[in-house]
Design a binder for these strands. Structure first.
Lengths: 199, 199
DNA sequence: GGGACAATTGTGGTTATCCGCAACCGGACG
DNA sequence: CGTCCGGTTGCGGATAACCACAATTGTCCC
């Protein structure tokens, strides 16, 4: 899977322009006319950078971004916006968007940013059969296990946790074991690092 | 040290308006007319939220923000900007600004955001009497302690660490205690979180 | 009713952590 | 030369984590 720029914009003229622009700088690209259509093709393994129009018919760029985040995507996203909407830009970046550029944009500058985004993506963890799985593993935890895990991550002793949840220490120990098992770690320290670096 | 909103703006009218506005919502505040003057008064222990004008004579708000970050400040910052400058807003948020609002702003909304920022600041680590900058504490560790810490963060048992470093378990325990003491944490989990979230 | 599953608890024992007390060694510094 | 500091180690005990074996309760579903 070669890294590429994934263009999502409902304006064909823009799609074409970007496709041509990227090609001129030796950046592979592929384009979709809507958030929905991209979502259908999206896979965890995609590498490169997503160039995403904020406003589109149907699902908006921001909505798509949210969805991808929920699904554990780490693909850097560069938003394109035709309206100088600061609150929108701020919200997007706070949620973790890589960049936010206004239309009309400077061609060279945009490509530079896309390339930077792609580099940042390449610098990301040697992929992750691991990283991808964290999200999955978290969903495998039962509600009670999540409660216990929170407290483990707070560095509390089993005894204290048992006290807070009004259960026996032994029960906490069992939960603890299950959590470690499900999360594939051997100690609370590993768990903390796994999660601290990934959400 | 009560949390407060720290206003930095070279426009006296704005300072006065904000001061009055915050007071009307029971938010303590204090104002400075320049980045330099605030910087002189800044201390690690300040709690609350910084409300910062982007453009000022002398040092700009962004420069001040950068400086504070370098000095290990974790005070949330809300930028005020008179120019609908998206790149500026994006850059600020990417650097970790809490929010970015345009002038003229909606009074209530601004205060809401300030309050949210202050809450986020309050939610920050309980902060001991000694929660100074982390990197400061890191420099206080002796080389040997750093070696041990690495291995603690790798989730290894004291016994294993002792083995790797060819020293007695007891020695590892001593280092471990010192590390926890110097870093102001009580367990390896806290240590992992402290560092995972901060480098 | 039986099966699957989450949550719960107990017993008993092994291993690890954590800590105070006490001590030795070697280098740096005045 | 004496002191301070970092690194080192031992002893013994309190506390916590961890684990295998075993068992009970309640819920949801076929």
């Amino acid at each position: 899977m070669k890294p590429a720029a994934y263009i999502v914009d409902d304006d064909e003229a823009i799609r074409d322009a970007l496709t041509w622009l990227f090609r001129s700088r030796q950046v592979d690209s592929r384009a979709w006319p809507s958030a929905e259509s991209f979502l259908a093709d999206w896979r965890e393994a995609l590498r490169g950078c997503l160039v995403l129009d904020v406003r589109m018919d149907g699902m908006s760029g921001l909505q798509l971004f949210d969805l991808l985040c929920e699904r554990g995507s780490r693909l850097p996203v560069i938003f394109l916006s035709g309206h100088g909407d600061i609150p929108l830009a701020v919200a997007a970046v706070k949620k973790g968007a890589f960049d936010f550029v206004e239309k009309p944009f400077n061609d060279n500058e945009l490509v530079d940013r896309v390339i930077r985004a792609m580099q940042s993506d390449a610098a990301r963890k040697p992929a992750g059969p691991e990283v991808a799985a964290i999200h999955v593993r978290l969903t495998q935890l039962t509600p009670r296990e999540r409660e216990v895990m929170e407290r483990i991550l707070a560095g509390k002793y089993n005894k204290v946790i048992a006290d807070e949840l009004n259960i026996a220490m032994r029960t906490v120990e069992v939960h603890r074991s299950r959590i470690f098992e499900k999360m594939g770690v051997k100690s609370a320290v590993e768990l903390a690092q796994l999660l601290s670096g990934n959400r």
